[in-house]
Simulated assay, not measured.
Amino acid sequence: MIYTAITLDVVLTLCGAWLMATPGRGLGSRLIMAMIMAGQFTDLAGLLWYGKIDVWPGELLGNAGITLLLAQLAALDWKSRSQREAPLS
Rank of each mutant, 00 (worst) to 15 (best):
M1N: 02
I2E: 03
T4R: 15
T4I: 09
I6D: 05
L8M: 02
D9I: 01
D9G: 13
V11M: 10
V11S: 06
A17T: 15
W18I: 07
W18G: 02
L19P: 06
L19C: 06
M20G: 08
A21T: 05
T22I: 02
T22N: 02
P23H: 02
G24S: 07
R25W: 05
R25F: 04
G26C: 10
G26H: 09
L27A: 12
L31S: 00
M33A: 05
A34L: 14
A34T: 08
M35R: 02
I36V: 15
I36S: 02
I36H: 06
A38L: 15
A38M: 13
Q40M: 11
D43S: 15
G46K: 04
L47T: 06
L47W: 05
L48C: 11
Y50I: 03
G51M: 01
G51R: 10
K52Q: 12
I53T: 08
W56H: 14
P57K: 11
E59K: 14
E59Q: 15
L60H: 12
N63I: 03
N63Q: 15
N63G: 15
A64R: 08
T67H: 00
T67A: 15
T67K: 00
L68Y: 12
A71N: 05
Q72L: 10
A75G: 06
L76P: 00
D77T: 13
D77C: 07
W78A: 08
W78V: 02
W78P: 01
W78T: 04
K79T: 07
S80R: 07
S80V: 00
R81Y: 04
R81T: 01
R84M: 02
A86V: 04
A86T: 03
A86D: 01
S89Q: 11
